[in-house]
Design a protein around this nucleic acid. Structure first.
Lengths: 160, 160
DNA sequence: CTCAGTGCAAACCGTTTGCAAACGT
DNA sequence: ACGTTTGCAAACGGTTTGCACTGAG
């Protein structure tokens, strides 16, 4: 585990304690899986599977209950890729507003965009629509560089 | 029914025919409900209830199957407000990219933003992340003008 | 020691499916 | 008349819950 990961885990333990929650082995295991798989946006089922490898006694209910707790504590955030299945990702420490996602319609890969980019848009919304923005969610659906490349090659293929 | 609504219905009938689908009374009833309730972002259950008033014989399965069909035809779009329940809204005729939503965290009201506003953001994404954007989804969570007003009043109340 | 947290299995609930009857084209 | 669509009810699958037991603080 890298130094960064250790920091994440420590910070999260701290948040658990502050929230008045107990540091059970189950919670620590789930925490570990989420930190290890950072960037992979796991579903409950995927988390359960990975946890099972380490702790076969654990039940799904515990995963559901734990993720719900982590969400309430702001430790993780859920993400809907419009397929009806929620995925969970670590909340980054410095983050105030949600970051953005690039979702590849071909391979399903999800890339994160940490730049905010929405300041001027939010200004317009607040003014023109008289809406007090607290958070946002921005997703782009399209083709990642790999899939776009492949698609182009296939097109070239055909046109030969 | 207004002239605009009639146009919507006619346009949608056309799209159904073009998709090789039959114009059954059930489909037309559901269409009607969605057009009547434009802007209300109904859930399947809500659509079912409203349809039931007119056609008590209809089953839920038909609503599910019909909405799925409408979605495939591009007649409606599903919307997730991050509560795990999909809501459906009419796709606007001219629309190429999805419009945006302002979701009030206090009263749950959903307002639509038809201005695109994302051109410059998309330009940056396409260039910096080498991602070919096909569509986007942008949601703002916060307080609508009414709820913001009420909240301010309550704060004033307390500080007296 | 105490009560929050857990494992298990049953309950739940929204969605999907199989099938025979009904109906649009 | 034909193949699609529908209503019904059963099946499904992910999530939640009740309960007795366990273990962290």
């Amino acid at each position: 585990m890298t130094k960064m990961d250790q920091q994440s885990v420590e910070r999260m333990k701290q948040m658990l304690r502050e929230g008045g929650s107990k540091l059970t082995p189950q919670r620590l295991t789930i925490l570990d899986v989420i930190v290890q798989e950072e960037g992979n946006h796991l579903t409950i089922e995927e988390i359960f599977e990975k946890v099972r490898v380490v702790k076969p006694e654990m039940g799904v209910a515990t995963v559901y209950r734990t993720i719900l707790l982590f969400e309430e504590l702001g430790l993780v955030q859920k993400l809907d890729l419009n397929d009806g299945i929620y995925r969970y990702e670590l909340t980054h420490e410095e983050e105030t507003h949600g970051h953005h996602h690039l979702i590849c319609m071909a391979c399903g890969r999800v890339e994160e965009v940490r730049d905010d980019l929405l300041d001027s848009v939010e200004e317009i919304i607040e003014k023109d629509y008289r809406f007090r923005i607290k958070d946002h969610s921005l997703k782009f659906y399209g083709l990642c560089s790999d899939c776009y490349k492949n698609e182009s090659e296939e097109t070239n293929e055909k046109s030969k």
